[in-house]
Design a protein around this nucleic acid. Structure first.
Lengths: 210, 210
DNA sequence: CGCACTCTTGACCGCACTCAACGTTGGTGG
DNA sequence: CCACCAACGTTGAGTGCGGTCAAGAGTGCG
């Protein structure tokens, strides 16, 4: 695993807990460290005139710090209790210079992040509310389990989802209700979802796309 | 300049012209090379069910190929006549392994691209039509000249702008008309724009943001 | 000159937003 | 243990911003 690789290369990993609702860093803060998320989920977001755009939700094992130069270009806040490994920035820089393979590994990750960001731009610019919600559900389903995971956890609030999808809380709620009514999903409770019609959901999310 | 550096490192640069309206590569194509744009402007876009999302417009000197693994995750099409230097992918890989600094340079670029993508996600998810158009004008103005560039070229069509901003052609046109009516910009013709009230434009685009 | 493409403008529409009320849930202190 | 309260989620009614449809004006190329 490349996370372990990162850790062993630097010899500088330092565990840290972030309680649900508290921030790992704010947008504009100077970058003092980079991180890998070992447990829990963070939301990454930008603010603009009171409005909020959630850039992404972290998954366990995710590297944090690719997009930031001198100052963080987004904020990171814990959705549930989170554990991260932090690498002081200067030590990280040293490791980067010392281990050429590291830059190459990070470059691959940056590649992935860019592709994900571009997909999200398509969603935000061109998809309907139903398509956006369906896309989110499908991508959460994919990250959970390797195959045929039909149960999806939604630890984030409706507001987080709305700010991620470029919608309002009300529209997210209504859209989920509609998906339930059409029997595409079931929801034992507000934060747990079961996909009952994967084909219909995929159709909504990806529209005969690759 | 790092572009020259790239070229000299690889010794494999190969010039190529792309006529206005023709494609450098399509979304889904296998990646055979990476490129630096030496002249002209390309639009990068993704397709989805007949809809289109323009990911970005290239600037001279821009490196193309960061976001692509085995296959291109977006298409690239020339807006006007374009010149690129292409590096065959395998040679580029070799250079990457041979010159450690190269990965580090590309990592910095990827950082920038990610930050730009995140800003665009904020625009697409949370800004009004006026704010979107104002943001585009400001960012085109910034890239043109170092300081106080008030004249901005818009070589792309209204459709390209619309697909970049997540709007329709009509809305882009109406919004530009409105900006003209408010005497924030002047337009000698449809593809040339002069900023007459930079403060108002900045206010619209960035809203007392950093 | 003619044709195709682009840009603009107008009238109308509809999807998602706003505003408001209510239901549900989980945490806290009496 | 339960009453209270605040935060979150859902639902409904009405609005408005940007989309759709349509027509016309400008532009450039063969």
């Amino acid at each position: 695993m490349t996370d372990a690789e990162l850790a062993s290369l630097t010899h500088m990993t330092h565990g840290r807990e972030v309680k649900a609702g508290s921030s790992l860093f704010h947008e504009g803060d100077p970058v003092t460290a980079v991180y890998t998320v070992t447990d829990g989920m963070l939301k990454l977001y930008k603010l603009f005139d009171g409005r909020r755009q959630v850039i992404g939700f972290t998954r366990p094992g995710q590297f944090l710090g690719l997009a930031s130069g001198d100052s963080h270009c987004f904020a990171a806040e814990a959705i549930d209790d989170v554990e991260v490994c932090s690498f002081p920035k200067d030590k990280f820089q040293t490791s980067l210079d010392r281990f050429p393979k590291l830059a190459s590994i990070l470059l691959d990750r940056a590649r992935d992040e860019l592709a994900v960001a571009y997909k999200q731009m398509l969603l935000l610019g061109r998809k309907s509310a139903q398509e956006r919600v369906a896309s989110l559900i499908m991508s959460l389903a994919e990250r959970n389990s390797p195959e045929a995971s039909t149960v999806v956890a939604l630890p984030m609030t409706r507001a987080d989802i709305a700010d991620y999808l470029g919608l309002t809380v009300e529209t997210v709620s209504r859209t989920l209700t509609e998906l339930r009514r059409r029997e595409i999903v079931r929801m034992p409770n507000a934060h747990l979802l079961e996909i009952t019609d994967q084909k219909a959901l995929l159709q909504l999310a990806d529209r005969q796309e690759a």
